[in-house]
Amino acid sequence: MALFPKTFTALALAASFAMPLPALALDDAQKKEFGEFIKEYLIQNPEIMLDVQDALQKKQEEARLVKANQVISENSKSIFDAKDDISIGNPKGDVTIVEFFDYNCGYCRHALSDMQTMLKKDKNVRFVLKEFPILGPESVAAHKVSDAFRKLAPEKYKQFHLALLGGEGRADEDSAMEVASSLGVNEKQIRDEMAKSPDTGSVQNAYDLAQKLGISGTPSYVIGNELVQGAVGFDDLEAKVKNMRTCGKTSC
């Protein structure tokens, strides 16, 4: 964990004393003496610097959540009901989980079982899959094949998604084509569709939303009023879904 520069920490500590005298009331000698006192105190109590770091991180996280909540409210339709996104599970489910993912994200592959367990255990959840290729040209190439497949065979998209994300090695154009062919959509069909309607809308929408939400990696989820970043695991996702049903928020 990175520590703050001593000057910054000293100023933060000085402010916490809430001294009645303004800084300008101290002469140079008093300022020097006070600075030496702070320095000595911090050296004797270095854990304070960690406390300051923790407090700042907590404050930044609270600000991030407030901002994300506002963005979710203002962009609800684009997040939960974008026309180009595919949803799996119960299309009329009472709770929707939106997942931003990349086909080459190792954590997304790990989280794949969380989604499958959720859909198996809870028949009233709707999962929206938002492709967010950010891990290089291979991810973008795989996404383009996926987008063409989605347009040609939307009813098989879940199978495509599970096969490609759950496959071995890196996902790229070739591996995505192989999965598409195994599901009955051949390479010529895919390439014709890619030429006819090259994807720009859905992925640009994902990039724009991610920037507004402050998403820094995959997987990232939107559940109700909350942005959840990282492969948090099935138990955490299930708890948030239950809270949505109990109080309309992910935390009751």
Rank of each mutant, 00 (worst) to 15 (best):
Y207G: 04
I215C: 05
F17S: 09
P154I: 11
F101C: 01
V140D: 08
I43N: 13
A142N: 04
R126M: 02
T9G: 04
G184Q: 03
H161P: 03
F149T: 06
A68K: 01
E168F: 09
L165S: 05
Y107C: 01
S182L: 01
K32E: 15
C252V: 09
K188L: 07
A10Q: 10
K120P: 02
K196V: 00
Q60K: 12
A25S: 14
L227H: 06
D28H: 12
G224D: 03
A148D: 05
G230D: 03
S139H: 06
S197A: 14
D84V: 05
A176H: 02
S175V: 12
E74R: 04
D192Y: 06
A195P: 02
D147Y: 10
F34G: 02
A10H: 00
R64Y: 08
K156M: 07
A153N: 14
F132V: 09
A210C: 12
V222G: 01
F127C: 06
K83Q: 14
P20L: 10
S216I: 13
E155T: 15
N186Q: 04
L183H: 05
K92R: 13
G106A: 07
D199M: 02
V241H: 03
D54M: 09
K158R: 14
D94A: 11
G89T: 07
A63T: 08
D192C: 05
S73K: 14
